[in-house]
């Protein structure tokens, strides 16, 4: 009977771990700044376009590219569209791709890693060998090929990005599972006759959560960067829709005459990447001090 008490103990340990992590995170000024900045950015991007008097596609050709002013805070683009509104809309797309593609990679990576770690032996070896081989593939090249051939759909874009970004997640999860499943409480669960599926869902995944959260937070900026990169090359999001990558691309083409078209979208993207990276670093330090050393 003593063995079956083990899970309860782990859960208790878990809650104090979360509290502890939260306390450590709050002490990290940069991470708190990142969190606040991110919340603000998400709110702006969601609510902003409704409050803005302009639409992202309404052109004002008479106005043309106007410098920032009281009526157009960030100026307008060459077609007279309000840049502030366009950045908010572009942010929606960029953040959406970031979150959605990360969700795709998270799902694939966690399932793959958990199954590999749980299966052990031959199956595990083969599955991880596949990951090793995929690691040597030039990822961005594949994303570019995928986006060119799969057409102009955003959904496909983030599926494509997610599909190549899951490898590290799979490795992390497998590592966690392998080390956790050696611990007694998993054995206890097996002795008690829990099904494998139940063991994975109820015990392994909750315990592997820390590293998963950290890596997820760090994947979002990587994915957003990839989207912006592909869009900058003209292969991602297509007009009249736009993302920060597209806006930066347009801005770079006209920067000599209208530098604000380059500068504001660049700031929006960089600031968001900053915030996510700070938050990710902070979470890593807070949740897994051992990992932070690496």
């Amino acid at each position: 009977m003593g063995e079956t008490k083990e899970p309860a103990h782990v859960v208790e340990h878990g809650t104090s771990l979360w509290k502890d992590a939260w306390r450590r995170l709050r002490r990290n000024h940069l991470a708190v700044f990142g969190m606040a900045m991110l919340t603000l950015m998400i709110l702006l991007v969601i609510v902003g376009p409704w409050l803005s008097p302009y639409s992202y596609e309404t052109q004002d050709r008479a106005l043309g590219a106007a410098a920032p002013s009281a009526s157009h805070w960030f100026g307008t683009d060459t077609l007279g569209r309000d840049l502030f509104t366009r950045i908010l809309y572009g942010g929606r797309i960029s953040l959406m791709v970031g979150f959605a593609a990360t969700a795709v990679s998270l799902t694939i990576g966690v399932l793959y890693g958990a199954v590999a770690g749980f299966a052990r032996g031959r199956a595990d070896a083969v599955m991880m060998r596949v990951v090793d081989i995929l690691y040597t593939m030039p990822f961005t090249v594949i994303v570019i090929i995928l986006t060119v051939y799969m057409g102009k759909s955003i959904v496909l874009l983030f599926m494509a990005i997610g599909a190549v970004e899951w490898l590290t997640m799979a490795r992390i999860v497998r590592g966690q599972v392998v080390s956790l499943r050696e611990k007694e409480f998993i054995e206890a669960a097996e002795v008690m006759g829990l099904s494998r599926r139940r063991i994975i869902l109820r015990h392994l995944i909750p315990n592997a959560l820390g590293p998963i959260i950290v890596y997820t937070t760090l994947t979002i900026p990587a994915v957003m960067l990839l989207e912006a990169f592909v869009s900058f090359l003209g292969m991602g999001v297509q007009a009249p829709m736009s993302s920060w990558g597209v806006l930066i691309h347009d801005g770079a083409n006209t920067m000599e005459e209208y530098p604000w078209m380059l500068i504001f979208p660049s700031i929006a993207l960089s600031l968001t990447l900053f915030s996510l990276n700070f938050l990710g670093d902070g979470l890593r330090d807070a949740l897994d001090p051992r990992m932070a050393k690496e």
Binding site: P221, L225, A228, F229, F232, G245, I248, H249, G251, A252, M255, L262, S266, L269, S270, L273, F274, N277
Partner: peptide, 9 residues
């Protein structure tokens, strides 16, 4: 955090 396609221009 500053991507090369921002830094370049």
């Amino acid at each position: 955090c500053i991507p090369n396609f921002v830094l370049g221009p």
